[in-house]
Structure formats: C-alpha cells, structure tokens
C-alpha cells in the first residue's frame, strides 16, 4: 500500500504529460480521419489505479474528444478489438454521468452496440469494479 502511494506521487506529473502527448496524437489522427485509431489511443494506458481526479478528468477529456468524433458506430466496432470493450464501457458510464445531452446521445448509441457485442458481463465488470476506475 505504501509503495502504491509513493508511485502515485512520483508519477502524477508523468501521467499528465503522457495524457497531453496522447491528446496531440489523437488530434493528428482525427485530422487524418482515423477516429477509431484515435479512440484506441485514448483508451490505451488510462490511469485506472490512481485516485487522483485530475488525471482521471484529463484522460476523460481525451477519451470524450475521440468518442464524439465517431460517426459510424458499426464501422467502429468492426475495427475495435474486444480487449478495449471493458474500458470503453467504463467511459460510457462516465459519459452518461455527465448528463450532457450530446455526450449522452453518443454514449447511448455506442452502449447499445457494445452491449450487443460484449454482453451483460461487460456491463457488470464496469459496474462492479471499484478498484480500476475511470
């Protein structure tokens, strides 16, 4: 536990820097109209273990940016690997929690297709997990 705390203090700035890098990469991917690649980049290396809300919000902004750029949800799933499903579901619930109309619309659209693909187990994993939060 003590070790974990130490790691957190050390890495907080590193996490923020990494998210900033991700953000730049996502912008360039979006310019090249590769929204799925952008979403993958956003989801990768999400700060799950840290309790620091600043890191979590920073990453959420990045994921949100990539998620809102998805136009064709079916096309997205045809190139999104199952390993991203659980983490994406967690961010969908974070999006729904914002109460923002366009965000919720988009989250619900993706949620429907994701549930079809990943099943109820995926929803349970995102709801039951209190350790790895987004």
């Amino acid at each position: 536990m003590a070790e974990e705390g130490f790691l957190e203090v050390e890495n907080l700035e590193a996490i923020i820097t990494r998210i900033e890098q991700k953000s730049r990469k996502i912008e360039s991917l979006l310019k090249q109209s590769k929204p799925v690649e952008a979403l993958k980049t956003a989801l990768e290396g999400s700060p799950l273990k840290t309790r620091d809300e600043r890191c979590k919000s920073a990453n959420w902004i990045v994921v949100h940016r990539a998620m809102m750029a998805i136009k064709d949800v079916d096309a997205m799933f045809s190139s999104l690997d199952p390993e991203y499903y659980d983490i994406l579901m967690k961010y969908l619930y974070r999006g729904l929690a914002t109460g923002d109309r366009p965000t919720c619309d988009q989250c619900l659209r993706i949620h429907e297709k994701l549930t079809e693909r990943a099943g109820l187990g995926c929803i349970l994993r995102s709801l039951a997990d209190t350790v790895n939060t987004v």
Binding site: D86, A118, G119, L120, G121, C122, L124, R125
Partner: peptide
Amino acid sequence: ESSPSAQTLALRDLP
C-alpha cells in the same frame, strides 16, 4: 501451494 499460475476468463453474460 507451490507456484500459482492463474487464468482469468471474462464471461459474456451474468456472473
């Protein structure tokens, strides 16, 4: 007891 090696399986449906 000696050297645990774990496999986890994520289910599609309810627990």
